Each structure stands twice: as structure tokens, then as C-alpha cells.
Amino acid sequence: LADDRTLLMAGVSHDLRTPLTRIRLATEMMSEQDGYLAESINKDIEECNAIIEQFIDYLR
């Protein structure tokens, strides 16, 4: 059971955070005209990261 939990934490961490990191990188490359959009996307990314952290904390 502990091994399954560790594997799940690693999978969640990698499989969800990697795309979020790519999205954040894309927002950094957006033009200044789209700053409001990038800010909104980054806020959503932070919310997703917080949910992931809560899930990982729960698994521990």
C-alpha cells in the first residue's frame, strides 16, 4: 500500500505539474498586449498547483 501511494504521488506530481509548467512557460512568451490573459492563466495554474499539493499532502 505504501509503495502504491508513493507511485501515485510521483505520477500526480509529474503528470500534472509538467503540463502546467509548459503552460506557464508559454504565458511568459506571450506579448505584453496579452498580459491580462497571461495573468489569468497563471492564477489558474497556481490554483491547480494548490489542489495538487493538497492531494499529495492527503496521500502522505
Results as ranks from 00 to 15, higher is better:
residue 2 A to W: 15
residue 2 A to R: 08
residue 4 D to M: 15
residue 4 D to C: 13
residue 4 D to V: 12
residue 4 D to N: 09
residue 5 R to E: 15
residue 6 T to D: 04
residue 7 L to F: 13
residue 7 L to R: 09
residue 8 L to K: 04
residue 9 M to I: 10
residue 9 M to K: 11
residue 9 M to E: 08
residue 10 A to W: 00
residue 10 A to G: 01
residue 11 G to Y: 02
residue 11 G to L: 07
residue 11 G to N: 05
residue 11 G to C: 13
residue 12 V to E: 10
residue 12 V to Q: 02
residue 13 S to P: 12
residue 14 H to L: 01
residue 14 H to D: 02
residue 14 H to V: 00
residue 14 H to C: 01
residue 14 H to W: 01
residue 15 D to T: 02
residue 15 D to G: 03
residue 16 L to V: 10
residue 16 L to T: 07
residue 17 R to F: 10
residue 17 R to M: 09
residue 17 R to W: 08
residue 18 T to H: 03
residue 18 T to S: 00
residue 18 T to N: 11
residue 19 P to D: 02
residue 19 P to V: 10
residue 20 L to P: 06
residue 20 L to F: 01
residue 20 L to K: 08
residue 20 L to S: 08
residue 21 T to P: 14
residue 21 T to R: 10
residue 21 T to Y: 02
residue 21 T to Q: 01
residue 21 T to W: 11
residue 22 R to M: 03
residue 22 R to L: 05
residue 23 I to G: 00
residue 23 I to H: 02
residue 23 I to M: 00
residue 24 R to H: 01
residue 24 R to K: 14
residue 24 R to L: 10
residue 24 R to T: 05
residue 25 L to T: 10
residue 25 L to Y: 09
residue 26 A to S: 14
residue 28 E to W: 00
residue 30 M to T: 12
residue 30 M to S: 07
residue 30 M to N: 09
residue 30 M to Q: 09
residue 30 M to K: 15
residue 31 S to D: 06
residue 32 E to C: 06
residue 32 E to W: 02
residue 33 Q to C: 07
residue 33 Q to D: 05
residue 33 Q to A: 07
residue 34 D to E: 07
residue 34 D to C: 08
residue 36 Y to T: 03
residue 36 Y to I: 07
residue 36 Y to L: 08
residue 37 L to E: 15
residue 37 L to M: 11
residue 37 L to S: 04
residue 38 A to D: 13
residue 38 A to H: 04
residue 38 A to S: 07
residue 39 E to C: 07
residue 39 E to G: 13
residue 40 S to D: 15
residue 41 I to M: 02
residue 41 I to C: 03
residue 41 I to F: 02
residue 42 N to L: 12
residue 42 N to I: 13
residue 42 N to R: 05
residue 42 N to W: 05
residue 42 N to V: 11
residue 42 N to C: 10
residue 42 N to Q: 04
residue 42 N to F: 07
residue 43 K to W: 11
residue 43 K to G: 06
residue 43 K to N: 03
residue 43 K to A: 01
residue 44 D to W: 00
residue 44 D to G: 14
residue 44 D to F: 05
residue 46 E to L: 05
residue 47 E to A: 15
residue 47 E to L: 10
residue 48 C to H: 05
residue 49 N to G: 08
residue 49 N to H: 07
residue 50 A to W: 08
residue 50 A to Y: 15
residue 50 A to P: 12
residue 50 A to N: 00
residue 51 I to E: 12
residue 51 I to L: 15
residue 51 I to S: 10
residue 51 I to T: 03
residue 51 I to C: 00
residue 52 I to A: 15
residue 53 E to A: 09
residue 53 E to W: 15
residue 53 E to P: 01
residue 53 E to L: 11
residue 54 Q to V: 09
residue 55 F to L: 12
residue 56 I to V: 04
residue 56 I to N: 06
residue 56 I to D: 00
residue 56 I to G: 14
residue 57 D to P: 13
residue 57 D to L: 08
residue 57 D to Y: 13
residue 57 D to W: 02
residue 58 Y to S: 10
residue 58 Y to G: 04
residue 59 L to D: 15
residue 59 L to T: 14
residue 59 L to E: 09
